[in-house]
Every structure is written in structure tokens, then in C-alpha cells.
Computed example of a mutant assay.
Amino acid sequence: MISRRKFLGGATAAAAATGISLAGGRALAGSSNGSARAAASLPLKVVNNTGQFDDASIFLYILGEVDGKRVHVTPEGEAKPVEMGDNGGDGFTDYAISLSDAGNLQLPYMDGGRIYTGLGDKLKFKAVEDGNGNAALAYPAGWVESDPNWGVLHDCAEFTFKDSGMYCNTTAVDMFSVPLSITLKGQKEQTTGKLKSGGRAQAFEKLAGGPFGDLIVEDKRIIAPSHGIDSGRFPADYLDAYIDEVWSVYSSKDLVVTTNQGEFKGRVSGNTLGFTGPGEVTIEKPSTRDVLFCDGALAAPNDAMGGPVAAIVGAALNRTSLAALASQPTDDPSGFYQGDTVHEYVKVMHEIADDGKAYGFAFDDVAGFAAYIEDGAPTEITLSLDPLK
């Protein structure tokens, strides 16, 4: 699981793993403003603006980790540990909260939290044993055709809530399906994840045809190209030519990457991009899959040296800005997604966002482009299911 990192904001933190089948959790505790502390529970409102489903047809699942144990939240706001015996006769748990019966929901302190929404049918979560023999959950994997939730319209938002505050985001790292937005009230009021009018339909229209068209699953979802590679829906060499170009460019000039630790200068030798500066960092030449997943050769450890450098390089590769801009990171989006071969999926996710921010890949938070908000003294959070058009 890839941790969200506040590389340029002065703090780094790692999220707890939240499931077995789902990669790419982002919402973590970072730094918060002021000395106020968050109350031990937070009112959660869920608003149905879909225009197509009534409240009785929408099912909520609040899941995460408390004190190292996987939990689900009841309608009363109690975090109950997941147990193997929770699987029913069909082999799956039933932690569903119908939106029509949601009442006054409360979020307890929780790490690696997710709020899943299932529209038109319940989702199937299976209690399983993790590698240590503890009860865990197999989460929906909407990019896997054999997954029991393949036919259900669903999506999720992510959060970590603790005494230092609420940290939350919407996500399209794995797929794009249900338009979700989050409004967080506290020291100020903030909203993220809201789409432009007709944004969902625009995404399906813009990505139809070409290699990205095979990622569209009817009108249910658009699978992220990272997962598309693994399922044979997307070419595994899509970014190879661009990666070759980057390696060629920086074999004869320096790449400068600036983090909180200072300035790193990098130069390619063979297949290795080596950096000197506050510390020595090396990155092997990544594959297209490494770039899209922000993993493999671009795996970013939760440290002060290699992690931030890898994340910034990975973000610039996904944004196809690395070959042209030798000083990274850059916060000017006009230089993103240029050239003949670009990450159209992420480009479109940002184009349809009302504020231009989206979590289209795991390092999309570099330079502040992710659909992420936080508050050190939150008083209420609202999750809106926005129009399905």
C-alpha cells in the first residue's frame, strides 16, 4: 500500500493498510494548524445528489483500523473489530448501513479509514485472515472482472481521524466511478472532489477510443491504467518511449529535485538515475507499470531522503513534465501532460474537477494537486454523492 506523503508541506506520515485487495491509500495525518484538538467523534453527513438512486438504494460501509485492529463502524458510531465469524451463509459480511436509516452518523478516531458507497445493491466484503492470522477484510476491487462487486456501482473516500485532526480525500487512483465530494468544517470550511457540471459524462466521453477506451466498463467505471496493465486492458509499454527520452535527456545534463532536505542533483548513468546532495539517492530506470503504480523502481520509502525524491520524479513522469523541466517539482500545471504520449486518464480527472484537483495517481499530492483537505479541529464532515451525469 502506498502512503500519502506531504513532501512539500513539512511533514510526512504513513497510513495503516486498510485491506487486502485494494492498493493506494492516501489520507494520512500530517501537520495541522493551531493548537486546537479534534473531539473523539465527528458528525458525518452523507448527502444523496445522484439524481438516479433513492436513499434506500444506497449502502454505506465505514471501515478502517483502531489500535491495530481492522474495524467496521455501526450506525451508532461504534468501531467494532472485524471477526472471521462475521461472514454469513453467502460467505460475506454484512456491514451495510442503508442511507435511508443512517440517522446521525458519528466517526470515531480511526486510521486508514474508508467510506464505501454501494449504489443499487450491497457490496460484498469478506472477512479473511491476514499474514499474521488476524481478521482483516478483502475490499472490493472494481478493476478485477472476477471480483464479486464487479457489477455494482461503487466508490469510496479515504480518511484518517485522530486527536490531531481529520485528513481526508477523494480518490481516482484505482478507478473513477461515483462522483464524490467532501466538505470539512472546523477551523474553516473546505470542499474537495467536486466535479464540474456534467464532469462524469465528460470523463467517459474524453477517454473513449484509443488505448484508454478499453478501461471503460459500460457506464459503471473507468479503470485506472495501472490496473489496466495487469488485466490486459492497457498496453504495458505505453510510457516506455517517454521514459527512454527522460533517461536520454538527463544523461547529459543535471536534473534538480528540491525537497525539505535541500537540493538534489541527478544524472543518468546507464539505467541508473543517481542523485547527490543532502544524501545519495538512486533510482533505476522504471517501467510503464512502475510509473503508473508509483511503485517498483519508484517505490518511495517513508523517509526524509529517498522517498521524497522518488515521489517527485514519479509525479513528473506521470505528468510527462520531467523531460522538459529540469527543476522539479513544479507547481505550474500548464507544463503538465504535454507531448504525443500523455497520461490521459489523470489529465481528464483534473480537467473535470471543479478546482482542478484530483487524486489520479498515488503521488498526485506532490506540489498540492490532490483532492485532499485537512483540519486540526474539525466539527463536521459531509460526504456528497454528486450527480451521475
Rank of each mutant, 00 (worst) to 15 (best):
S3W: 00
I20P: 01
G24I: 00
G25V: 02
S32R: 00
N33P: 09
G34N: 09
L44S: 05
G51R: 09
G51T: 07
D54M: 07
I58V: 13
L60K: 06
G68I: 11
E83F: 11
E83H: 14
F92V: 04
T93G: 04
Q106L: 08
G112M: 02
R114G: 01
G118C: 06
G120F: 04
K126I: 05
K126M: 10
D130S: 10
G133L: 11
A136Y: 04
P140H: 07
P140Y: 05
D147Y: 02
L153D: 10
A157P: 02
F159L: 07
D163P: 14
S164K: 15
S164N: 14
T171N: 02
T171P: 00
F176Q: 10
L180I: 07
K185W: 09
K185S: 15
G186P: 12
T191K: 04
T192M: 03
G193S: 07
A201D: 15
Q202L: 10
L207F: 03
A208H: 04
P211G: 12
G213M: 03
V217H: 10
V217K: 11
E218F: 13
H227Q: 15
S231F: 14
S231Q: 15
P235R: 01
W247F: 13
W247D: 07
Y250W: 04
S251H: 09
L255F: 13
L255Y: 13
V257D: 01
R267D: 09
S269Q: 13
S269C: 08
L273P: 05
G277E: 15
P278E: 13
G279M: 14
I283L: 15
T288C: 02
R289K: 15
D290V: 03
A297D: 04
N302I: 09
A310E: 01
G314N: 09
A316L: 04
S321C: 09
F336T: 02
Y337T: 12
D340A: 13
H343P: 05
M349E: 06
K357F: 03
D365L: 04
V366G: 03
F369Y: 12
I373V: 15
G376V: 02
A377Y: 03
L383V: 09
